[in-house]
């Protein structure tokens, strides 16, 4: 009898983390525009997505849009922070992400602003955008137009905050630099050294030479993978938010 209870306890203890994960119900965003309600057409999503991608490429600011039917539990403010937390919108350290959550059936919208953009997208500005740009269109059931107007207004409000100079050049620059350092190192130091070794110890020369190439290709590989930083499936870049932004109902 007791052993069964012990086993049951152990199983419960082992399962606890999975159960708490299952309860969360927070969507993982795989693209910038996520519509769980089938409100937007695929070409509308595509257009919004490309607007946001272009904006992200030039500024590193990450804006994401999420449409849900209704908020799973709690307030939309809480939900928005959870989604933001899970997806980490914005760059790590800059916290320059913005999340627009629309709960269509609850008729409520929230714009959650990352810490780094709170200075330009203040609560008042965000609330203004919701009241003036988004809600009048949502009232007419023009969801796409409302979202688009909201996104445009957000982009306009952020303006020149965070230029893309860092993202566009930093990673490739470092990769190229390291690559050249490796090249110089290789041709200026290792190769002559190896050549010397080969002449001196004829038997093990080949072995030395090969290990040299192996480490060389390792260098180049790591340089390229960090160079291919912007590609692949989209995700947040480690930004955080702290409840800044505004909520509106229609």
């Amino acid at each position: 009898m007791r052993s069964i209870r012990v086993i049951a306890f152990c199983v419960a203890w082992l399962l606890a983390p999975f159960v708490s994960l299952a309860q969360e119900e927070v969507p993982l965003l795989r693209q910038r525009v996520t519509d769980l309600t089938n409100t937007l057409t695929s070409s509308q999503i595509h257009f919004l997505e490309s607007t946001l991608r272009g904006y992200e490429d030039t500024t590193t600011n990450q804006i994401a849009v999420l449409l849900v039917g209704s908020v799973p539990a709690g307030s939309i403010e809480e939900f928005a922070v959870r989604v933001f937390d899970k997806n980490r919108l914005g760059q790590r350290g800059k916290d320059n992400g913005v999340l627009m959550v629309i709960a269509k059936d609850d008729r409520v919208i929230r714009i959650e602003v990352g810490y780094g953009l709170e200075g330009v997208l203040t609560d008042a500005v965000t609330s203004h955008i919701i009241q003036r740009q988004v809600i009048p269109r949502f009232r007419k059931e023009d969801y796409y137009e409302g979202i688009q107007a909201g996104v445009d207004a957000i982009i306009q409000a952020i303006g020149g905050e965070y230029e893309a100079t860092t993202k566009g050049e930093e990673a490739p620059l470092i990769a190229t630099f390291l690559f050249f350092v490796a090249l110089v190192f290789f041709f200026g130091f290792i190769l002559p050294f190896m050549a010397g070794r080969r002449r001196a110890v004829i038997g093990s020369g080949r072995h030395w030479y090969h290990s040299g190439w192996g480490s060389m290709s390792g260098w180049g590989g790591s340089g390229w993978s960090s160079g291919g930083w912007g590609g692949g499936s989209w995700s947040g870049r480690g930004g955080l938010s702290g409840g800044g932004g505004a909520t509106g109902r229609w």
């Binding site: 609560d123 965000t126 609330s127 702290g242 409840g243």
Partner: peptide, 21 residues
């Protein structure tokens, strides 16, 4: 007033977020 109200609302929300964290 409208601005202050939205600021206060936002601040209350920030307080609850930071308290939870």
């Amino acid at each position: 007033f409208v601005t202050l109200q939205s600021q206060l609302e936002g601040t209350e929300n920030r307080i609850s977020v930071e308290r939870r964290r």
